[in-house]
Design a protein around this nucleic acid. Structure first.
Length: 716
DNA sequence: AGCACGCCGACT
DNA sequence: GTCGGCGTGCTC
C-alpha cells in the first residue's frame, strides 16, 4: 500500500506539498511529525499535516520523503488546527508559523556551498578572467563558501546567475550540505500532577468572579472573559483560577507583555507554583529555551508563563489561557510570521475548549466593546484613591518646563521628596532646521529627520543608527543659523539642571544607559534617594523596580496623537496611564501633565483615570469613522529597492483590488509613513471592509499576482 | 525563500 | 556582439 502525505514547509508559500512515503517510514509517519523532504535542489524540514491513501492531485511526479524525524508528533491535532487558522487570519504562512513554534535546532535545512574545481584552480593560473570571477575563485582556494556570504562580501546583486555561469564553465561545483538532524529523545508521557496548595484569602466580590469563570471551566467548552480592573485584584483572581484548573489536572498558559517578565514576576510565580511552572522569555539562551520547551512537551509544566511567543508552547490538556495586560502592544508580532497573540489565544482556546481570560485596567477599545456586547465583561470594583492631577497648557515662552510645574518641583524638593519626569523623546531635539533655507538634515537610508544628540555631539537616525557629526553650518546654504525643532529628554534634563543647580538630576534612556547594569544602578540610586529628579522615557516607566514618588511630570504626551493611526488616542491614553503608575497611592501624590492639547479627550480621561469615559468617547469616533471594532482593516506594506517598480506594481495591485472588490474601501497606495527605511523604499495601502470575508476574498484573489516583497498587517 | 531561465540595454 | 541586470516562474 502506498501512502501519501501533505507537508507544510517553512517558506513564505501558502500551500502544502505532496510526497510519497517509502515503505521504510510508513510505520513512523503520523500527523504532526517532522520530515526531511527534497524541495527543488534543497532539502528542508517539513511538517506532516495530512496523511492520505490516495494522491491529492494527479499528474505530478511526487518525490519521496527522505526521513521521518520524530517518534511522536511534535504538534498535536489541536495545535495544527489552531495554527492553521491563525495563519489564515494573518495571511501568513502556516509552515513558518509551525517553524516558529519549535526550537530552532528542530528545523534544519540544507545549505549550498561552493567549491573550487580542479579546472577552476587551473583557470586561476592560466586564463584571463573577469574581475569578479577571479575574486571569487581566489577566495574559494582557501575553503568553500555559501552564495549568501559571497553576495555580502562582494556586494554582488545577482549571485545566482554568476554562479551558474561559473558552474557551466566547470570552474566551480555546488554541493548541498546538511547538518545531521539531532536525535531527540522520546517524549515522556505526562506525569500525574500533584495538587498544589496556594493559600490566599479571597474577598467576596472576587470570589464571585472566580466561581463564575471556574463554573464555565467545568463545562469543558470554550468561554472567554475580560477581567477589567486593577492589577493586584486581577492577579488574585488569576491565581485562584489557576488553582482550580490544576485541581482538574488541566494546564494553564499565562501570557504577559514582553517587558513585564521581570525577576519580580518570575519569583512570584515560582514561589506560588514551584517547579510546576515553566517560564519562557526572550532573553533566554537558545539552549535554555529548548530545555524549557522539552519540559513543557514532556508534560512536566502545569503552568507556562511567557510573552507572545509562548502562545506556541507545546501544552496539551490546556484548560485556561490568560492574556494579562491585554492592551499591550507587544502581543503583536511586527515581523514575519505576523500574528497577534491576543487573537491567537482566542483561536487556541476555542480549539482546545479552554477558558480564555483577558485582563487589563485599560483594555483595547475593541476588547472592551466586544466584552460588553457579548456579556462577558467582568468588572472588578475599583476604588483607588484619586490622585491630584493637573493639566497645564504648554507656554513656550516659559521654557520647556512651565513655571507652574517648576514651582511644584521646588515645593517637593524642599520637602525632601523625589520627582519623576517623563518625556517620550530621545535625544536633545527631534530635528534641526536651517532658519535661512529651511534645510532639515535627514538620514540617507531612511527619509527621517536626524535627531540631535547633544552629549554625543551627533545627529542620529533612530531607525537605522546612521549618524553625522554635529553641524555648525548648514550644508545647503552655509548659514550658521541652525535652529532646533522640538524637545527631547536631554534638553529637559539640561533645563532642569539649570533651574535646580543644587539638586541631583539624572536621566534614563536607552542612549545613556546602554547596559542593563547601568540601568539597574540608576534605579538603585534613585531608590536610595541619591537622585532628586529622574527624567526618563517609556523605558524608565517600564522598570518594575521603580519606586513610587509624590510628584510626576508628564511632558508633551500628545506626540503620539500626530500619528496617522486610528489607535493614536488609545496609545496616548495608555502612555499617560503608564507614566502615572509610579505615583504614591496615599492620596498625597500629584501628577502634572504639560501639553499643547490640554482639552483632548484622551488626555483629559487619562488625567482623571477614567477609562469608561475614554472608551465612550473613542467608541463613538470609531463608529463614526467606521474603524475597528466596526470594520476590519488590513494594511499592506510593499517594499523594495526600486521605487519605480514599487510604484508601478502597487498601482497595478490596487487597480486589481478595485476591479473585483465590492464593499471594500481602498486607501492608497501611497508612500508609507516612513517612505524609506534602511535603504528600502516603502509603499503602503489600507483596505477596510465591514466584513472580514470581503477582505479575504479579495486578497486571496489578488495577493498571489503581486511580485513584490510585502508585509500584511491585520489591525484590530 | 532560493534557484533557474529568458529577455533586454551598455559596454569590452 | 555578450555580460549582467532583473522580471518571471516553479518548487511536490
Amino acid at each position: 500500500m502506498r501512502l501519501y502525505v501533505e507537508v507544510a514547509l517553512p517558506l513564505p508559500l501558502n500551500q502544502a506539498f505532496s510526497y510519497t512515503v517509502p515503505e521504510l517510514w510508513q510505520e513512523r509517519i503520523k500527523m504532526g511529525v517532522r520530515v526531511l523532504v527534497p524541495f527543488g535542489e534543497r532539502i528542508l524540514t517539513g511538517f506532516v499535516i495530512e496523511i492520505r491513501k490516495k494522491r491529492l492531485k494527479k499528474g505530478l511526479r511526487l518525490k519521496e520523503i527522505k526521513e521521518v524525524l520524530d517518534e511522536k508528533p511534535v504538534f498535536s491535532p489541536f495545535f495544527l488546527s489552531f495554527t492553521r487558522k491563525l495563519s489564515n487570519y494573518y495571511y501568513s504562512s502556516w509552515g513558518e508559523l509551525l517553524q516558529a513554534s519549535l526550537p530552532p535546532s528542530y528545523v534544519i535545512r540544507s545549505k549550498t556551498k561552493i567549491f573550487l574545481s580542479e579546472k577552476g584552480k587551473e583557470a586561476l593560473w592560466r586564463e584571463k578572467l573577469p574581475n569578479k570571477e577571479r575574486l571569487i575563485l581566489n577566495l574559494l582556494q582557501k575553503k568553500a563558501y555559501t552564495p549568501f556570504f559571497l553576495q555580502k562580501k562582494y556586494r554582488i546583486k545577482n549571485i545566482s546567475s554568476l554562479l551558474s555561469q561559473l558552474s557551466k564553465k566547470g570552474l566551480i561545483h555546488l554541493r548541498r550540505e546538511m547538518k545531521k538532524p539531532v536525535r531527540r529523545r522520546l517524549y515522556l508521557d505526562p506525569v500525574p500532577q500533584r495538587q498544589l496548595e496556594i493559600d490566599f484569602s479571597l474577598e467576596k466580590s472576587l470570589r464571585t468572579i472566580v466561581e463564575q469563570v471556574s463554573l464555565k471551566g467545568e463545562e469543558k467548552g470554550f468561554f472567554n472573559f475580560l477581567l477589567f480592573g486593577p492589577k493586584n485584584k486581577r492577579e488574585t483572581v488569576y491565581f485562584h483560577l489557576i488553582k482550580r484548573v490544576l485541581v482538574r489536572k488541566e494546564k494553564t498558559l499565562f501570557l504577559v507583555p514582553e517587558i513585564s517578565l521581570s525577576k519580580c514576576l518570575i519569583e512570584k510565580f515560582e514561589n506560588k507554583l514551584g517547579k510546576k511552572v515553566a517560564i519562557l522569555h526572550s532573553r533566554m539562551s537558545e539552549r535554555k529555551r529548548e530545555l524549557e520547551w522539552q519540559k513543557i512537551k514532556d508534560g512536566e509544566a502545569a503552568v507556562v508563563v511567557g510573552p507572545r511567543s509562548a502562545l506556541f508552547s507545546p501544552i496539551d490538556n490546556l484548560g485556561l489561557i490568560i492574556v494579562e495586560e491585554e492592551h499591550d502592544d507587544s502581543y503583536f508580532q511586527q515581523e514575519k510570521p505576523f500574528y497577534d497573540a491576543r487573537k491567537g489565544a482566542w483561536l487556541r482556546a476555542r480549539e482546545e475548549k479552554a477558558i480564555l481570560v483577558y485582563g487589563s485596567a485599560m483594555p483595547t477599545v475593541g476588547a472592551f466593546y466586544r466584552a460588553k456586547k457579548g456579556g462577558y465583561l467582568l468588572s472588578l470594583d475599583k476604588k483607588e484613591p484619586k490622585n491630584n492631577v493637573l493639566i497645564l497648557e504648554e507656554k513656550s515662552k516659559e521654557g520647556i518646563v512651565s513655571l507652574r510645574f517648576r514651582e511644584k518641583i521646588r515645593d517637593r524638593l524642599k520637602q525632601g521628596e523625589q520627582v519623576l519626569v517623563f518625556i517620550n523623546r530621545r535625544g536633545y531635539a527631534p530635528l534641526l532646521i536651517c532658519s535661512k533655507c529651511n534645510y532639515i538634515p535627514k538620514c540617507i537610508n531612511c527619509d527621517i529627520a536626524l535627531t540631535y544628540h547633544k552629549k554625543e555631539e551627533k545627529l542620529i537616525c533612530h531607525y537605522c543608527n546612521y549618524y553625522l557629526p554635529k553641524m555648525e553650518v548648514c550644508p545647503e546654504c552655509g548659514s550658521k543659523i541652525i535652529k532646533m525643532g522640538g524637545v527631547g529628554i536631554e534638553a529637559v534634563a539640561e533645563e532642569l539642571k539649570k533651574s535646580f543647580p543644587q539638586n541631583r538630576i539624572d536621566s534614563f534612556t536607552s542612549d545613556e544607559t546602554e547596559t542593563k547594569k547601568e540601568q539597574e544602578r540608576i534605579i538603585r540610586s534613585f531608590s536610595r534617594g541619591k537622585i532628586d529628579i529622574l527624567v526618563g522615557t517609556q523605558l524608565l516607566a517600564h522598570q518594575a523596580a521603580l519606586p513610587s514618588v509624590s510628584l510626576i511630570g508628564i511632558l508633551y504626551p500628545e506626540t503620539m496623537l500626530a500619528l496617522s493611526d486610528y489607535r493614536a488616542s488609545q496609545k496616548t491614553f495608555q502612555t499617560i496611564d503608564l507614566f502615572m503608575r509610579p505615583i504614591r497611592d496615599d492620596g498625597q501624590g500629584e501628577v502634572i501633565i504639560q501639553t499643547a492639547l490640554p482639552y483632548h479627550f484622551s488626555i483629559q480621561a487619562a488625567a482623571s483615570q477614567d477609562y469608561i469615559s475614554f472608551f465612550n468617547h473613542e467608541i463613538k469616533l470609531r463608529r463614526l469613522m467606521n474603524y475597528p471594532p466596526f470594520s476590519h482593516v488590513v494594511g499592506i506594506l510593499f517594499y523594495g529597492e526600486n521605487l519605480r517598480t514599487l510604484a508601478r506594481k502597487s498601482r497595478e495591485f490596487s487597480a486589481q483590488v478595485e476591479s473585483i472588490a465590492k464593499e471594500v474601501e481602498i486607501l492608497g497606495p501611497a508612500l508609507a509613513g516612513v517612505k524609506r527605511l534602511r535603504g528600502v523604499n516603502r509603499v503602503q495601502m489600507i483596505l477596510k471592509a465591514k466584513k472580514r470575508k470581503c477582505l479575504d476574498e479579495v486578497l486571496e484573489e489578488t495577493l498571489k499576482n503581486v511580485r513584490l516583497k510585502k508585509s500584511i498587517c491585520v489591525f484590530s
